[in-house]
């Protein structure tokens, strides 16, 4: 078996004040190197919540979460920020590019955050990534001037710029047509194969899920099949 990337045990997350909603109710999950996995499940079952915990956007209320053997809850705010910057990449359901920057700059943002300055190698890599996602002609376009599918592909390139070991994608094709959806998944698979990046993708599309190495099914804050 591949090396272990993430190990979550008995993850619990509650929302709300007086009336608490258990978004996650004791989730155990292991994700290995280079894995290409999907999470499926009905709306409100806790898929996004789980992804946010894995990506250190939020902290669990209970349970333990380790990345390469390091407990995330023991990290400081700044260490978590560095973890988000270098070790994981996010692709969100809604594209979430910064409209103030052009396509290339959006892709470069995580590398700027990491090093604080423009780096020639990263610049080259960003252009390569944009070519890889088929946007060679749109490099200098302002983020707002791109179509939904193009923005989605820019955000995939952005998730990959710092060569993370894990990419978390929350319904990355949620508002794309089926043909574009197909293209994006092909792209993610190819990247996973070529770069050895692990992917964990939330999707509603069973057809897409069938093509993943592993399907994790959730319901009511628990994993019901894996």
């Amino acid at each position: 078996m591949d090396e272990l990337l993430i190990k979550g045990e008995n993850l619990v997350k509650e929302y709300g004040g007086a009336v608490k909603t258990r978004a996650l109710n004791g989730v155990d999950l292991k994700i290995g190197n280079r894995e290409f996995s999907c999470i499926i499940g009905p709306s409100g079952c806790g898929k996004s919540t789980l992804l946010n915990l894995l990506g250190a956007l939020d902290r669990p209320d209970d349970g333990s979460l380790q990345f390469r053997g390091v407990e995330l809850s023991a990290m400081s705010e700044n260490e978590l920020a560095a973890f988000r910057n270098k070790s994981v990449g996010f692709v969100f359901q809604f594209h979430h590019l910064l409209p103030e920057f052009n396509a290339l700059e959006n892709v470069l943002l995580p590398s700027w955050i990491e090093s604080g300055r423009v780096n020639q190698n990263r610049q080259k890599r960003a252009i390569e990534l944009l070519e890889l996602v088929g946007l060679e002609g749109k490099i200098k376009n302002p983020a707002n001037n791109l179509s939904g599918g193009q923005q989605q592909r820019v955000s995939i390139a952005r998730a990959l710029i710092n060569s993370p070991e894990l990419v978390l994608a929350d319904e990355p094709t949620g508002n794309l047509d089926s043909e574009s959806t197909e293209q994006v998944y092909e792209l993610l698979r190819r990247i996973s194969r070529e770069m050895g990046t692990a992917f964990l993708i939330v999707t509603h599309d069973r057809n897409i899920a069938q093509k993943c190495d592993r399907i994790i099914e959730m319901k009511d804050g628990r994993i019901i099949s894996d």
């Binding site: 990506g55 956007l57 705010e77 700044n78 920020a81 560095a82 973890f83 988000r84 910057n85 270098k86 996010f90 969100f92 979430h96 590019l97 910064l98 409209p99 103030e100 943002l109 995580p110 955050i113 990491e114 952005r158």
Partner: peptide, 16 residues
């Protein structure tokens, strides 16, 4: 707030 959220998700610290 959306932009700040994205920046934080990409590793921008509180201080930044």
């Amino acid at each position: 707030s959306k932009e700040i959220g994205i920046l934080k998700a990409m590793g921008v610290t509180k201080g930044s």
